[in-house]
Amino acid sequence: MHQFQVYKIGPEIKLGSVDLSFTNASLFMLISAFTICLFLFLGSKKKSIIPDRVQLIAELFYNFIAKMISDTAGSKAKPYFPFIFCLFMFVLLCNMIGMLPYSFTVTSHIIVTLVMALFIFIAVTVIGFLKHGFKYLSLFVPKGVPVVLLPLITVIEIISYLSRPVSLSVRLFANMMAGHTMLKVFGSFVISLGLLGGWLPLSFSVALTGLEILVAFLQAYVFAILTCIYLNDALNLHH
């Protein structure tokens, strides 16, 4: 599990008793952010009517996220487009860069995904209360439910609402970690079985790499679309 190890790079930074040292996790976050900026810079630098490849991909991502937001959360969610775009790109790039051998996968750490999920959870809750006041609590009381079932349903709704950050963060973290662990396991099989028997796990490893790239994209997409859905709950009460 060496690939998940976090270690300090450079001098120790301490704020009081809190350790804020720059780690390899921070380095790969920085690399991801920088790659996004570079990609978007190259993709928006030229103002050509017929886009080149990088511009086309950048605009594809833009339209992809824009469509996703308008499909799931409607036109009211437009002001949150930069945040969701940023979130999607960041998670996607962290996942993808994690696929490179000897790199570090930022999103395979529960604390990273938990911070993001908690931020989304708190932000969505705040937005919901700001938009609808205490009527936002009616989110927990679905319409058209028999009165007998209402207490039970309400409790379930509250639990499911509160478990949102957990499910959101654990989904991404577990997927990334499981994928990398599986790749590592199959990689070690290749070594231990040697030249004679190593070919089977090697082919599995290759196939899994393809799958993991798909998962990396899919999890970023799921993360972003779930954020959109939560936002939709907050913006359009009782859809």
Partner: peptide
């Protein structure tokens, strides 16, 4: 050990 550091850098970079 590095949870706070990771959170801090995540928030900063994000």
């Amino acid at each position: 050990k590095y949870w706070i550091s990771q959170s801090f850098w995540l928030i900063l970079i994000f």
